[in-house]
Design a protein around this nucleic acid. Sequence first.
DNA 1: TTGTATGCATAAGAATATTATGTATATTTG
DNA 2: CAAATATACATAATATTCTTATGCATACAA
Lengths: 116, 116
Amino acid sequence: MYSKELLKGTLKTIILKLLSESDQMYGYQITQKVKEITEGKINLTEGALYPALHKLEADGLLSTEKIEVGNRVRKYYRLTQSGNNTAQEKVEELKEFMETLKSIINISPQKLAWSI
Amino acid sequence: MYSKELLKGTLKTIILKLLSESDQMYGYQITQKVKEITEGKINLTEGALYPALHKLEADGLLSTEKIEVGNRVRKYYRLTQSGNNTAQEKVEELKEFMETLKSIINISPQKLAWSI
DNA sequence: TTGTATGCATAAGAATATTATGTATATTTG
DNA sequence: CAAATATACATAATATTCTTATGCATACAA
């Protein structure tokens, strides 16, 4: 597990990306999926996930559907039209941000000194 | 400029990385350096930077030295021994985190469906 | 029957940022 | 030369977004 603070700000983008690649998903499934893809390196906590889902829904990016499975109810989320657009934007923004971060993380002493 | 929330959690690592590649730097210089390296894409705000620097100093990762320049005082920061170790760790952790994030961001519908 | 897994949700608290403000000197520009 | 911008530090109020803890409930395995 990584220092949790790194995850800050990326959670919504992760949710939107997963939903953009699948028809619909429910909360618990998202946590398991992320755990699986990242080989256990990222574990979403419920206290972070559910408020984030609710916020995305409130913002009109997700719609929900409750489906009974046995005696339990699952709440499925799917992207709205607006959510689909936002998903693409957020993912693109995250990619660019990571490239920019790399430019700092991979800087050499020479390049840094160049203009100090 | 990126959505600010992405920067959350990466600020300390950025500071430690810059200091690990230079002898010493002062706060304002760090903001300018980051702006230059990222071509204006990341602008550190003072309200975030100074508290972060103070925290790193309080944690024993940075030491300070005040130097008069003209009639003004600059507060230079440099890594302590402990800060140097932490810098390496944090940078490594950030790199690994970015790799992990990529595995989510670049996932294809097929791979995702594989185990839904 | 007791723990683990599944499934949702919220509340208290911590961490970390934004925005605004304050103080002060130096330099550039109209 | 006055005013704006740049340099340089700092903190307070507020917002956001997590963690941790708690609660409820069903299903299944040891």
